[in-house]
Write a protein that binds this DNA or RNA. Sequence first.
DNA 1: ATCCTCTATGACCAGTATTCGCATTCTGAA
DNA 2: TTCAGAATGCGAATACTGGTCATAGAGGAT
Lengths: 227, 227
Amino acid sequence: MRILVIEDQPEILQNIADYLELQGYLVDCAYDGLGGLHLAITQPFDLIILDLMLPGMDGITLCQKLRQDARISTPVIMLTARDSVDDKLTGFRAGADDYLVKPFSLPELHARVEAVLRRGQAGMQNMLTVGDLAYDMNSLEVSRRGVHLKLSPIGLKLLEHLMKASPHVVKREALEELLWGEHLPGSDSLRSHIHTLRQTIDKPFNSPLLHTVHGIGYCLKTTDDGI
Amino acid sequence: MRILVIEDQPEILQNIADYLELQGYLVDCAYDGLGGLHLAITQPFDLIILDLMLPGMDGITLCQKLRQDARISTPVIMLTARDSVDDKLTGFRAGADDYLVKPFSLPELHARVEAVLRRGQAGMQNMLTVGDLAYDMNSLEVSRRGVHLKLSPIGLKLLEHLMKASPHVVKREALEELLWGEHLPGSDSLRSHIHTLRQTIDKPFNSPLLHTVHGIGYCLKTTDDGI
DNA sequence: ATCCTCTATGACCAGTATTCGCATTCTGAA
DNA sequence: TTCAGAATGCGAATACTGGTCATAGAGGAT
């Protein structure tokens, strides 16, 4: 879990960083708004801890830019010395996920961090369905009509892409790039994998979901043929 | 609210005690490590304020004994004149909940006290369970079907993460980051640890909880194989 | 300071699962 | 009909995993 802490007071920053690292988090630091924003945009974090008052750019503005300009939804915990309701409202309106009033104890911060991270995980609605086919992206389990299906890693990747695209057609090149990037295998083994996938998700059931579009690619959809 | 203050410098102790009593707390005092430890063990306190440097037994040792030997989880605020990172880390590792560097203002202390007490009331529900496997994060004890299991620190970290994620799959990279942060060990020793963990939590029992997801990572769940 | 124990790490091997490439057969469109 | 594209099936190559063990290092005890 990577956490970015943006705070201008060195002692506080040091305290927070040390404590969180001790709890097993990877901590990066920024001392002002601009530096923090830059880090937050260029690197992936699981959580941002953000002081309200910062040199360069205040926390609320930073949070707004993050959400609106950069479209980054990393959860944010806002720190502030002030305690007025106004600040809280402004903070939440700017997109902060939680709020902590200074001075706070470090275990208290830890509790909030855990809470926000847990919330983030629970929020993930990673369930894909096409017809009676279901793919739980958390447990990586695939089932059809309640029957558990076992697929290979490549099969899973293919299926994920096809389900996300459903009911649209996916070009062969798109699938090849998905699986191998620029470094394609010598022959077109994509067909083999499509075949294997078909064996698994369609063969045991009477209605096929995975359709071939001749010369173009593949498409995953129910056969009720409503186009 | 009863607070125990352990501090060898009489003026400071007097200051703190007077101030806290004025705020309505019941304050007990100790002048050295041994006396403090004795009081802390024999009587119930809601909070302990503990100087790092004490005659008889230093604060860190005292804190460790309190946590490990006496299994007392009363929150501890550590006081110190020093400010080195080492001290802080050692303090936290010993189980201190917060840290205050001398000289501090009494209102500052009061704020920390309030913060720590508030957090304490929140009540930590630190018990993880997956199937018949239980992990008490307060005492760091792991048991399965009532049988106490002994794991290494790395094993505990792995297990904690896997249990929190259960029944989701956890990627190998996520576990590696959890254990080693940015600079990973040369070879994949993760598998050794998974193996050790498996030996401990699965080998003595007939139903495995720790499953491998080929090419992806690991997953902790019961084998009831539903879905 | 020295020894001792426990843990972490890295290397290796064998067994297994997965992927790839190829040969063959099949299908759909012109 | 003809032919390119598609499906199928299978063996070989590859990647991954579990298990074992030797070594190195940390921490505690003497």
